[in-house]
């Protein structure tokens, strides 16, 4: 029940000496954005970023959930079994599995919200972000979009003047394809797709390399045409900023379209792990085959 290592390692200076594990050439190939200049934030143009950049490393993670309140008998169940995987910079890792298989638990563990676990979680991303499934509860209805963005900017660790913060907020809106008019509006009349764009903008507000964003069924509640747009947006932002995504989805076809590698989870275990192309072409596990068949 102990944490055997830190939750967060602030290894975001981008020096390759700090990145321990060896990675395949695949990692280098997957992050073409790794060498792109990075304006405003963190490291500036002159800091080299290692092409082998790791964003997240999970090793032999076992997580437990204790049910029962103060007055009933407590039961400790194991919800994650020996989970191990890595995410590199500029990589989109898909996570599929049916409900109740522990995907959300894994997300919470990565975000540092889980107490009862053993194993290693090394998060090189200083402040991982999350995009939630329900666009309608993700934005504070009592405040304007601009206010919400500025709140995120206020606590990003970057110093801003009032004007520069506003400018930055506008820049964020531009990046996600929203008009600047939205700055002064409350979220009332925004559509699902627009709301998710705002959430993505908020996630970018505190960006620091490497940056992990967990998308928990982020497009599942959207109309299919809007879904496509948001997937495009995520990909383009990933390219531009070298983001890493953990893309949780029940829709294998979406995973095929967007992700580079994918984890298949069943009952708290990773039953199969592969690149997307490989998995779809040659699924090894029975469960994977079932999922693929059902998604046809």
């Amino acid at each position: 029940m102990n944490h055997t290592s830190d939750n967060y390692a602030n290894i975001n200076t981008g020096n390759s000496t700090d990145h321990s594990a060896a990675h395949s050439a695949e990692a280098a190939a997957e992050s073409p954005a790794a060498t792109r200049a990075f304006p405003f934030f963190g490291h500036g143009d002159d800091t080299p970023v290692s092409p082998e950049g790791l964003t997240l490393k999970v090793e032999h993670l076992n997580a437990y959930y204790t049910s029962g309140g103060p007055f009933s008998k407590k039961r400790r169940q194991q919800v994650l079994h020996d989970v191990s995987f890595e995410i590199h910079e500029g990589e989109i890792l898909g996570l599929v599995g049916e409900s109740g298989t522990g995907k959300t638990t894994l997300a919470r563990a990565i975000l540092g919200l889980l107490q009862d676990y053993d194993g290693t979680i090394i998060n090189y991303s200083k402040r991982p972000q999350m995009i939630f499934q329900d666009p309608y509860s993700s934005l504070n209805p009592a405040h304007t979009i601009g206010w919400s963005l500025e709140e995120a900017l206020r606590y990003s660790g970057q110093e801003y003047t009032k004007e520069s913060r506003r400018e930055r907020a506008f820049w964020l809106l531009d990046k996600v394809g929203l008009l600047r008019d939205h700055y002064d509006r409350k979220p009332d009349f925004l559509s699902g797709g627009q709301r998710q764009r705002v959430c993505i903008a908020q996630a970018l507000a505190q960006i620091q390399r490497p940056q992990l964003i967990i998308a928990d069924e982020a497009v599942s509640a959207l109309d299919v045409t809007i879904q496509a747009q948001i997937l495009h947006l995520l990909y383009e932002l990933k390219e531009e900023f070298g983001l890493s995504f953990l893309f949780i989805s029940h829709d294998l076809n979406v995973v095929y379209q967007l992700c580079d590698r994918v984890l298949v989870m069943k009952k708290g275990e990773i039953v199969e792990q592969n690149t997307v192309d490989e998995l779809f072409a040659n699924p090894k596990e029975e469960y994977t085959k079932q999922l693929l068949k059902a998604a046809e």
Partner: peptide, 18 residues
């Protein structure tokens, strides 16, 4: 046509489309 084109399918990758 737009609706059908937007359906996630295993024939197109986002990166290819972009």
């Amino acid at each position: 046509k737009r609706l059908i084109a937007a359906i996630p399918s295993r024939t197109r990758k986002i990166r290819d489309m972009v």
